[in-house]
Design a protein around this nucleic acid. Structure first.
Lengths: 348, 348
DNA sequence: GAAAGTAACGAAAACGTTTTCGTGTTAAAA
DNA sequence: TTTTAACACGAAAACGTTTTCGTTACTTTC
């Protein structure tokens, strides 16, 4: 087990100073060609690579970005990471991850753990608990210490930073508009409680679409799920709620759900009640996950372009990191990623 | 934008030496209670946190582990990460990720990028290309430099390191055994080319199960998919192949697939050909992904316990990192995670 | 009152780099 | 021959810690 070789060792071995070795390796004009060749050959032989930690300490930048997400076992988030990683690597950065598990305190701890020099900036999506508590002090503190943050998807106007969001409102509006065009007269909405910003916006899109077509919204067609627990735990309870929705609205012929699982459950319930999808009921979901593509019938969805979000977030962050000179002007941008309606078998 | 405060600044402010500040904060007995209180109060006020990079340089350990996987947008791998992150965080480590995208060169580059001081050890699953090329020099070089590696899932006996694998052989055997018990007489296998080690082992399990029940294997019942490209790209071609399989084997009444997608496609094809699942054909897949749970009919699968694999891999790595004194004895272990057959609707 | 001990603190090295600023040697110019 | 310039290299500081080893000044002890 030979340890990694350092400048000092090369210097001792070749009987020159550390400075000379360093300069020789960086092809400085100060060093004679003879010495350069000697040093470079030796370095190559021993496969010398500068120690990243030492560089980070010296340069006061780590070329690493931290990404904090509520959970990783989730198609949307892993796709975002994928996008972040792509541009980060291309621009010479590493990516370090932290999972909040939708918990406020884990989010805070994770950020503190990384903020002490380990990374140059954050890309993050807030936990549900943080959204509920509306406590954003950790974001603001991080930023006053000169560490930039880019938020994506779940954002909040109280925190001033760069943001990348999906056009939830118009995505939902388009989807519901599509259902109406397709002849649906009684369209249900399955959404989340309002503190999840994206759920709220999608709900507004639903309402707007109805209004635009002079269809009065009905409270009994709107089902708001409390997501404070994770889905998997009470899938059955959820299914019951949706079944209730169908039974108390016999004329139901369209469903817009704010995520994949809700949409799939709606289809399952429909089938159970003897309704055909898409002939009796048409269903549209939100998110471009794997489930939609492989479901039967496959699910028409509003695609969020998660990868593109990740790429854009990384671009924004790295641009900010590498501009540097500003700091006073502090102009933040919000990039909106437009959604696409991906037509599949669950709509006519 | 106030920069993070350092020991030096505290020292200057309080008119003591850096050493005194450091010792005071660590509650050293050398420092008087008076001074300790003064320093600690000041540090708290300014929210002092030691700089991780400086600590890493001094201690020559980063408390960070690197994880390199073929892709992250994949339920199995993200679940493994989730497990790694869980125990890593619990034991005070961060996790930094690298994606190889199933490419050999990206795997090498990623490892080199991280191996220069950024991390203390690797957890990784090899890319398909690496398995095909059988070039493992980067693993061995990394290890000779004193950086431990734990491999999971896709492993190879040529590399001597700790490993965490799934009991592919017995998992497959149990699954096929179950199909036979359920009365299947003609069981197809949908697998990958042999260079993917897990595909190979699962194939062997299939054959073993047949043999144990005195059922001669038939070549025309075995479909080996070339996975060098990713699925998504040629889903349709794949479907055609599977359809071919069904048509040339009219008596087919059972399918064992080495992953979820293949299994789902088999069900899709069956339905298309007017066959009922599970009454005419029974299907079992491998991997405990989301698709299986939410498919219709839901898919019986061999569960791999991905999260548990991640946890175990992290345990192994951190144990090794924190034992230290060895280095000569070098005893490597291979932990086998047992599989479970999760019964759902696609089997009787 | 001298020797010994103790309490409280500081200087400096070390981790591995890069970079600024000497410094000594040699070659060219005066 | 003396001054100047170019060349090739080294010493040292800096990044932010921790830790070892002094070094004071004061208190015991005999």
């Amino acid at each position: 087990m030979k340890r990694k070789i350092t400048l000092k060792q090369i210097a001792r071995e070749l009987d020159v100073s550390i400075s000379t070795v360093s300069k020789a390796l960086r092809n400085s004009a100060e060093i004679s060609d003879d010495t350069k060749q000697k040093v470079q050959a030796f370095a190559k032989l021993y496969n010398y690579r500068p120690n990243n930690i030492a560089l980070s300490l010296k340069n006061r930048r780590t070329n690493t970005i931290g990404i904090i997400i509520p959970e990783i076992v989730h198609h949307f988030f892993s796709k975002v990471i994928s996008g972040v990683e792509l541009v980060a690597n291309k621009r010479g950065y590493n990516v370090i991850i932290g999972l909040s598990n939708e918990s406020f305190s884990k989010e805070v701890i994770n950020m503190e753990m990384l903020a002490n020099g380990s990374i140059d900036g954050f890309i993050l999506s807030m936990s549900k608990e943080t959204l509920k508590l509306q406590d954003y002090h950790h974001f603001n503190e991080t930023m006053t210490q000169g560490m930039p943050i880019v938020m994506f998807d779940r954002v909040v106007s109280d925190v001033k930073c760069d943001k990348v969001i999906v056009d939830d409102f118009n995505g939902a509006k388009k989807a519901v508009g599509k259902l109406i065009e397709n002849g649906c007269k009684s369209i249900a909405l399955i959404t989340t409680k309002d503190y999840v910003s994206v759920g709220k916006l999608r709900t507004q899109g639903y309402l707007e679409a109805l209004e635009e077509h002079q269809m009065p919204p009905k409270a009994e067609l709107i089902l708001k799920i409390d997501e404070s627990l994770d889905y998997e735990a009470h899938l059955e309870a959820l299914e019951k709620e949706i079944e209730q929705l169908f039974q108390s609205n016999p004329k139901l012929d369209g469903v817009f759900a704010v995520n994949e699982i809700y949409a799939l459950l709606a289809m399952k319930v429909a089938r159970k009640l003897g309704l055909d999808v898409p002939n009796d009921v048409q269903v549209i979901g939100f998110t471009d996950g794997v489930l939609s593509k492989h479901a039967t019938p496959s699910l028409t969805t509003v695609s969020q372009h998660a990868q593109q979000m990740g790429e854009k977030a990384a671009e924004l962050l790295i641009d900010k990191l590498e501009s540097e000179f500003n700091s006073a002007d502090e102009v933040f941008q919000t990039v909106v990623i437009t959604t696409d309606l991906v037509k599949r078998e669950s709509t006519k």
